[in-house]
Design a protein around this nucleic acid. Structure first.
Lengths: 334, 334
DNA sequence: AGGTATGCTTGAAACGTTTCAAGTCTAGTG
DNA sequence: CACTAGACTTGAAACGTTTCAAGCATACCT
C-alpha cells in the first residue's frame, strides 16, 4: 500500500541502498542522482517507515514522558517544553500519566521498553530507580525530571526546591511573620520534602515557628480538605506556605468558607506560579519555577544522549526558583 | 542485547513460531509448552519488540492525539480520557500540540504517518480534511475530536455546541438580561462558531440584542485584551458569554481593572467548566462539557476500528453540555 | 602506461517479529 | 489394523529499513 524504498528505487532507477543514502547521508550521493531520488520520493509521497527503521537502529525516535499528572499545570508546561524540543529533532513524545501509582508507572515502563523508545523523561513516582536500571542497561537514555537525586546513571534537571522553600519563608519573615503554617503534600514526594527542608532550616535559624499539616495529594480538593481539617482543629498562624499552587487554591477556598480573609487574616504563599495563580480569587504570591525551560532542557539533554554514539557524560542542570509577589501576602494584621 | 523470541525459543526448546503463538494465540498451544515458554520469557525478561511487530502488522499500537493546546485544561482532561482508554488496550498515546498552526499540524501528521500509528484523534486546526485523506487511504483510523462535521470517512465525537450556546443564553434570559455581549474566539474555530450560532438563534427568537467581540486566541491573555479593547470602545451590556473559561478569566481581569464588579455590574457565563473556574476570583458560571468522557469515548471508538479487521462503520457520538451555576451570574442590577 | 586514490553505487545480510502451509503425533473410528 | 481428524509444532518467507564490504569508474600522479 504505502510506497517503500523499493518503489522509490525503481522509479528513480537506482538501488535501494542509494535511496537510503539520500535519506541518511545525502552528501555521499551525486547531485543528480539525489535529485532524481528526491523527485521520486515526492511523486510517490513516500514516507519512510519508522518501525522498519527502528528495527535496524534499535531505538525509536520517540521520547517517553512519565509524569504524575499532566492535569497539574506545572507538568502541562513542562510537557510543552519537552514536546517542542523533541519536535525540533523530529522526535515524538509519548505521554504517560502515573497518578503517582507504582503499578501504572511499571506498566508504562514496560510499554516504553517494548516500543524501544530512545529516551525516557521521568518524574519518578517513587524513590527507587530499580526498574530503570534495566532500561539503562538496554541502552535507553533516562533523564530525571524535576528531581535532583544525583545519579551516576542518568542526567537530571531540577529546580532548587530547598532554595524555593527558603525564599518563601524569607518573604514572610520580611513581612513580619514569625509563626507560619506549612501545608505539605504527601511526604514521599522528594520535591515537597526539599521545600520543607528549606523552610525548616530558615525558620530554625530565624526563630520562626512552623506548624506542619499534610494533604494526601497535590490537588485543590486535597488542599481544601487538609486546610479545613486544620481549621477545625483550631490550628492557626498568620501565614501559610503551600507545597504547590493547587493546594493553595484549595486552602483559600477552605479559609474563605471559614470566614477568614486573605491576606488580612492570613497570608498565603503558593508554589509553581501556574497561570491560574494570577487569576485566582486572591491573586497568589507564589514561587515561580521555569517550567517550560525545565522540560525543554531535559529533552535536549536526552536527545543529545540518544543521538550521539560517543560515551555520554551524564549531567545535572539546576534551575533557580523565583519569588512572585501578588496580593495574597501582606504584613500580619496586628 | 535485549533478548528476542529466538532466545526464548532456545531456552524453552521450541521453535520461534511457537513462542509467537504463545504471545498471540495462547489457546493454540498445549498447556505445558506454554508454561515452559512463559517461564523462559520471565527468566529472560523478554519484552517483544514493538518495531519488529509493527513492521509485520503494518500498524503500531499507538494513537496520535492532535490538539490545539494541551495547556488548555479542556484538552488536558480530554487527553486523560484518551490515555486511560489507550492504556487499557495496551496502546501508547503520542501527544501533538499544534497551537492552531497548520504547519505544525502537517509536521505532526507526517511524524505520525511515519510512525505508522494505528489511529489518530484530531481536533483539526483547520476546516479541510485534505491531509487526512491519505492517512485514511493508508489504513490509519481517524477520529475527529470535539468536532461534529459528519464525515463518511471517520468517526467523530463531540459535544453539542449550539445547544451549549443556547443554554447559556437561556440562563441569562431567565435572569432577566436582554442585552448581552458575546466574546468569541477566532472565527475559524468550528466549536466557537457553533456556540455562537446557538446564542444568536436563541437571541433572535427572544428579542435579545447581542454585541459580538472577538479574541484572537482562546487564552486568558487574549480575553483580557479583547475585553479591555471593548471597554475602551465604550461597549457595554449587562451580561457576557465567553467562548471558553480561559477567555472568561481574562475578561474578569479586564473588567475588574476597569472597576466593574461581577456579577453586580455584569454577569459572566464561561464555557468548558474547567477546574479553575470554580476557584477563580469570581467562581464562574459555566457550561460544562464531559471532557474526560469525550476523550475516552473517542479513543474507544478508534481502538475498536484499529483492532477489528471487519469493515468498520463510522460512528458519531454526541454529548450534551450542562449548565453549572456559580457566582458570576445574577439578575441585572437595575 | 601502470598504479593509486577518490567518488559513487550496488547487493546482500541483518534486524525481530508474524503468518501460514506443511509436517508430526495422538487418539479415535470402523 | 488402517485411516482419518484433530491438536500441536515447525520452518521459512516476508515486512521495510540500514549498513557495509565490494565493485566500478574516473581522475590524478609519476
Amino acid at each position: 500500500m504505502a510506497p517503500s524504498v523499493k518503489d522509490v528505487a525503481a522509479m528513480a532507477g537506482v538501488s535501494i541502498g542509494t535511496v537510503s543514502n539520500v535519506l541518511n547521508r545525502p552528501t555521499k550521493v551525486s547531485t543528480d542522482t539525489r535529485e532524481r531520488v528526491e523527485r521520486a520520493i515526492r511523486e510517490l509521497g513516500f514516507i519512510p517507515s519508522a518501525p522498519a527503521r527502528n528495527l535496524r537502529t534499535k531505538h525509536a525516535r520517540v521520547l517517553g514522558l512519565i509524569v504524575p499528572d499532566i492535569g497539574n499545570p506545572f507538568f502541562t508546561e513542562v510537557a510543552r517544553g519537552v514536546e517542542d524540543a523533541a519536535l525540533e529533532a523530529g522526535y515524538g513524545v509519548m505521554l504517560c500519566n502515573t497518578d503517582q501509582r507504582a503499578d501504572r508507572e511499571d506498566q508504562y515502563l514496560r510499554l516504553l521498553e517494548s516500543q524501544r523508545v530512545g529516551g525516557i523523561l521521568i518524574t519518578p513516582a517513587r524513590r527507587s530507580m530499580k526498574p530503570l536500571d534495566r532500561l539503562i542497561a538496554g541502552g535507553t537514555a533516562i533523564a530525571l525530571l524535576d528531581n535532583s537525586s544525583p545519579s551516576r546513571q542518568a542526567c537530571s534537571v531540577y529546580v532548587d526546591d530547598a532554595m524555593g522553600g527558603t525564599i518563601a519563608a524569607t518573604h514572610l519573615q520580611d513581612l513580619g511573620h514569625s509563626s507560619i503554617m506549612w501545608l505539605a503534600g504527601p511526604s514521599d514526594i522528594p520535591q515537597v520534602a526539599e521545600r520543607e527542608a528549606g523552610i525548616l532550616r530558615f525558620a530554625n535559624e530565624h526563630d520562626m515557628t512552623v506548624i506542619r499539616i499534610e494533604a494526601e495529594q497535590m490537588s485543590a480538593e486535597a488542599g481544601d480538605r487538609a486546610m479545613g481539617a486544620a481549621l477545625s482543629n483550631k490550628l492557626s498562624a498568620t501565614a501559610l506556605i503551600c507545597a504547590n499552587d493547587l493546594l493553595a487554591l484549595g486552602a483559600v477556598r477552605a479559609l474563605t468558607r471559614a470566614g477568614l480573609r486573605v491576606p488580612q487574616d492570613i497570608s498565603i504563599v503558593g508554589y509553581d506560579d501556574i497561570d491560574f495563580a494570577a487569576n485566582a480569587a486572591v491573586p497568589l504570591t507564589s514561587i515561580r519555577q521555569p517550567k517550560y525551560e525545565l522540560g525543554f532542557a531535559a529533552a535536549q539533554l536526552i536527545l543529545q544522549e540518544c543521538e550521539s554514539s560517543e560515551p555520554h557524560a551524564h549531567r545535572q542542570i539546576r534551575f533557580e526558583p523565583q519569588l512572585v509577589i501578588r496580593s495574597s501576602t501582606s504584613a500580619p494584621h496586628t
